[in-house]
Design a protein around this nucleic acid. Sequence first.
DNA 1: TCTCTGATTCGACGGATGTCGAGACAGGTA
DNA 2: TACCTGTCTCGACATCCGTCGAATCAGAGA
Lengths: 116, 116
Amino acid sequence: MPKQAPPRLDLTAAPCCAPLTQRRVPTETAAALAPAFKALGDPVRLQLMSMIASAEGGEACVCDLTPAFDLTGPTISHHLRVLREAGLVDAERRGTWVWYRARPGALRQLAALLAS
Amino acid sequence: MPKQAPPRLDLTAAPCCAPLTQRRVPTETAAALAPAFKALGDPVRLQLMSMIASAEGGEACVCDLTPAFDLTGPTISHHLRVLREAGLVDAERRGTWVWYRARPGALRQLAALLAS
DNA sequence: TCTCTGATTCGACGGATGTCGAGACAGGTA
DNA sequence: TACCTGTCTCGACATCCGTCGAATCAGAGA
């Protein structure tokens, strides 16, 4: 869990969501959603996102995420932070461990933009 | 139009497409699709993609794209090349102008991955 | 309180990225 | 042929990004 709530994007606040293919995405919408796509634009983060979103109970522990990659703890922590700051996931510390869960609506909004 | 066909990703060749939220995305799939998300992870490219995909006739001329941004020609050309190499668009020169069109199936595949 | 473990932050490094100006290339047109 | 216009390539620059080791912080338990 971050020491203080990090500057987090609220994707649902984006001027929203007509499909990309329907009309030109306004500048503000592009600026609001591009960071989320950027966050998914790394293979490790794409897998992290998938592991979190598909985890049973809807949440995944960092202690399960880290050993799934050939990367150090700090690096995984960095990628999780990027996902957090992009508004894609939320983190919660419970006792010793930190749990991540997908932010409801975030993926849906991105999917809606790409939908035809 | 690129001088020679650039190394272009074939998104449809990616081990494909169960939603992110359903099961963990395999490493190869993540490696194949992350570049496409990365390409959309820039506000300018997101708008370019939208302008191309939503253009009437399904294609847009560079000569219409460039003046829509406060950027130089080379910079727009660079962004279009990134979209091309990510497998999201195709380019074709017809006479003086170069036309870009959305690559069918590319956006659909990304949307499918994000779908819940 | 002290110690141990899990997770984050910090600082550093090499490599990638966005932007531009200058120059090259492709097609029209005279 | 020569010239003009539209587009791309090249080289340079500052900035950002992915990764690591070391240090720090947060809880749990002795």
